[in-house]
Design a protein around this nucleic acid. Structure first.
Length: 255
DNA sequence: ATGTCGCCTCATAGGCGA
């Protein structure tokens, strides 16, 4: 089973990019983040053989799961805050696999209300992942985590020192997720490999110089991690005209 | 501080979020 994740930075602006990528790669499942609008073009994806479930809001955020087989929605909200109305979480069962798509808050600037919301969101995610670990629920969590896990995951730590994605607090929380027994699929298969990024700023020709960060991740529960075959970043979509600032990451599991 | 996108509106320019 191949599962991909892609922050598209507006599905309206990126519909043709996503469709052509799906037709070329035919993943079983695609997780999308940052849809940026209430309209989701489910009919356009159905035409090319993908069913979909989307959680949307006006202007901001938004996540969707696309699949060639039926999707059973389990939850559209992350537990722990009834007042949180952001469209950032979608939990589903697809082909017998428990899949969670997240768009973790950006949190900039550090020290702001946004930053506090990010940390609280990560605490809620940790509690949920802890419950799954305790109950032995095998689950894959994928998406835009908005966390640069280690120094090796950015081109130059100095450039990200003042950014929320690189602060000690979110990084400590990301490590805490791993300590619960989850595996960072990409890093486990590519230990010590530098220069592997999923996001590059639009400005200053960041992509051309490979000045990026690795913030789109797949975390696997123990038994799924045993089934991990490959995890690759496809840089090709980032080279296209009018690209998203993120590019897809694809994980393969032998089920 | 800046760079560049995409969205929205007290809309055709500017603010916000990323």
């Amino acid at each position: 089973m191949r599962i991909a994740s892609w922050n598209v930075n507006s599905i309206k602006s990126r519909l043709e990019h996503v469709k052509s990528w799906l037709e070329a790669h035919e993943p079983d499942v695609l997780l999308l983040q940052e849809l940026k609008g209430t309209e989701f073009p489910s009919a356009a994806f159905l035409e090319i053989g993908y069913q979909s479930v989307a959680v949307t809001q006006k202007t901001y955020n938004g996540v969707a799961i696309l699949s060639r087989t039926p999707i059973v929605t389990l939850s559209t909200t992350l537990a722990g805050d009834e007042a949180d109305s952001h469209a950032r979480y979608l939990e589903a069962s697809v082909g017998g696999i428990h899949i969670v798509n997240i768009y973790l808050p950006n949190g900039n600037p550090p020290g702001s209300e946004n930053f506090a919301y990010k940390l609280a969101w990560m605490d809620r995610l940790q509690r949920q992942m802890s419950r799954w670990a305790e109950s032995g629920t095998e689950v894959l969590i994928g998406g835009d985590f908005n966390v640069i896990p280690e120094d090796i995951d950015c081109h130059k730590p100095e450039s990200w020192m003042r950014d929320a994605l690189f602060q000690p607090e979110p990084r400590a929380r990301y490590r805490a997720l791993l300590q619960l027994g989850y595996t960072d699929a990409f890093r486990s298969l590519h230990p010590g490999e530098a220069g592997q990024f999923t996001f590059w700023d639009y400005f200053r020709q960041a992509f051309e110089h490979n000045r990026g960060i690795r913030i789109d991740h797949f975390l696997l529960s123990p038994k799924l991690a045993e089934r991990l075959v490959s995890c690759v970043i496809d840089k090709e979509p980032r080279k296209q005209v009018k690209p998203s600032d993120h590019t897809p990451i694809i994980v393969e599991l032998n089920l």
